[in-house]
Design a protein around this nucleic acid. Structure first.
Length: 269
DNA sequence: GACAACCTGACC
DNA sequence: GGTCAGGTTGTC
């Protein structure tokens, strides 16, 4: 799925288009895309979008009625603004109709979901409350303490959304390469200086990736259906066998924590 | 911590 | 046919 930069790009795009606009109709094509079943029309139709926020990789669309439309895009979910009456493709699962355009939620693999939560549910929805702070919400010292206090393999730890949110497979690989840290390194054994460097790398790549409107490896597109540009700045992700940009040795790909890790066996210790 | 599961599509 | 894919969750 989209990781933090892609989710943030979509949110920035949607904000410009739908804040202050009224939802005049909802058409659910795939009922199962709603985590708790499709909500009754009356709970959404007529409400205006008051704000859009991000919590980790979740998108929170705040409505004037006090409810919140929660979305997780998982691997292939998309939110795109489409012209009215646009022909839906077979992976479009829900359409939110506004006065002058429509917001389409589509998802090839259907791992993503929509959920409408009430005012009183905001702080009690279990999958939301367990999400940890994203890297922008903590400082370097807090990050160092966070990873040194756990005895975990560093890469899966970086991707554990309950510890720190927003990073996925691409940005975890890219951050570890830039910080020169081996993806299997035990988090408790990373020195303060190197953990600080890792924090700096994470912030830098997230900032740059947001500036480039995200990474499009295969499916990801922004709210206007356009691809991002940060994939051109990837140094190791998806580059198995290619020379390391620092030392020239071939980049290795290896399963770590059930996911493909890409790294340099010489530069990352 | 490893692995399967959820699903479809692309590629070898 | 098999493998792989920006994610998360549940089961050993």
């Amino acid at each position: 799925m989209p990781e933090l930069p892609e989710v943030q790009t979509i949110i920035n795009d949607l904000k410009k288009k739908i804040i202050g606009r009224k939802i005049i109709d909802i058409r659910t094509i795939t009922k199962s895309i709603w985590r708790n079943g499709p909500p009754p029309q009356r709970k959404i139709v007529g409400a205006k979008v008051s704000n859009i926020e991000r919590k980790g990789k979740y998108i929170l669309i705040r409505l004037s009625c006090g409810r919140t439309l929660v979305t997780h895009l998982k691997m292939t979910g998309r939110y795109t603004i489409e012209s009215k009456g646009k022909i839906k493709n077979k992976h479009t699962h829900c359409v939110f109709v506004f006065d002058e355009f429509e917001l389409h939620f589509s998802d090839v693999r259907r791992f993503g979901f929509l959920d409408l939560i009430g005012i009183s549910d905001i702080n009690s929805t279990k999958y939301l409350i367990k999400i940890g702070p994203d890297p922008f919400e903590i400082n370097k010292g807090e990050f160092i303490r966070l990873i040194q206090s756990k005895k975990r393999i560093i890469k899966p730890l970086l991707m554990d959304q309950t510890v720190i949110s927003g990073l996925g497979n691409i940005y975890a690989d890219e951050a570890l390469f830039r910080a020169g840290i081996h993806p299997r390194k035990n988090s408790s054994k990373i020195s303060k200086v190197r953990a600080g460097n890792l924090y700096g790398s994470i912030i830098e790549i997230l900032d740059n990736a947001i500036r480039a409107r995200g990474s499009s490896v295969s499916d990801y597109v922004d709210g206007s259906g356009r691809r991002g540009g940060y994939q051109h700045e990837h140094l190791v992700y998806g580059k198995e066998g290619e020379p390391c940009p620092k030392c020239g040795r071939a980049i290795k790909r290896e399963k770590i924590g059930g996911r493909s890790a890409h790294y340099c066996t010489r530069c990352q210790r």
